[in-house]
Amino acid sequence: MHKIIAFLLISTTMTSCFYDRIELDYNQNENKKVIITGWITDLDEPQFITIQNTVNYLGENAPDPISEASVTLSDSQQGYELSHRSDGKYYLPDNWVAVVGDTYTLEVDLDGLTYTATHKMRTCPSIENFYAQEIEDSTLTDSIHVFETIFSFQEIPGEGDAYYGIDYVAGSIDKDTLFNGLYTNDDFVDGEYFEDIEISDYDRLFKEGDEVVLDLFSIGYETSEYLLDVQTEIFKGSPFDTPPANVRTNFTGGALGYFIASGAKRETLIIQ
């Protein structure tokens, strides 16, 4: 559908079109808002959330981190205090152990206000039959051997599931960009076997010798809707665009941002 939309857009403006970088003068960021973002998983790696202020949309604006908040993450049994290290990042203690299937509550106290969000850490299905396949499309390969990854998994029966997957070269920062990965939910496919899924981004295919990591997250239906909101907002330009609007948040108390707790699976392979 995106291809069709792009085609129509080009057709709409095929007569002539001019693009100019312009200066815009309008009120920005009059009321700074607190932003809390976090994506904790059961993977064996440091888990953190980030607190920052909104910054002006236009111009050069580095993030505006907040370091003085009091942050607690609770499961059904106990709460853990997160500690600030740098750049508005608050880390869970090293002894924290994820409880898959439990619902987590994140509570942030800041300047006398409390912001709260909850998210269930859903079980993530196993990654099956993970392999790399050489791309044969000559327009993409340009005489170099490039590869994409393919995998399968069993969707968990019961409606309300959604998944996010991303593949990247181990140690790279590719995984740090939301839309280098893909997401889907179990609408119309509840309980089905997802076979030979291709998620590699054709702008960053893999080469021989690359150690490729595949992360699969069980994010829940509501979070897939959040990702759809974000996608809608940042990929504007089609004739079918909806009016711009704030993406949803699962925080109460007036903060924006989103908190995700998800079960995850990770597999690696070396391209040969």
Binding site: Q28, T54, N61
Partner: peptide
């Protein structure tokens, strides 16, 4: 009027 960053986005 403003923005924030989440996982590089």
């Amino acid at each position: 009027t403003g923005k924030y960053t989440f996982r590089g986005t």
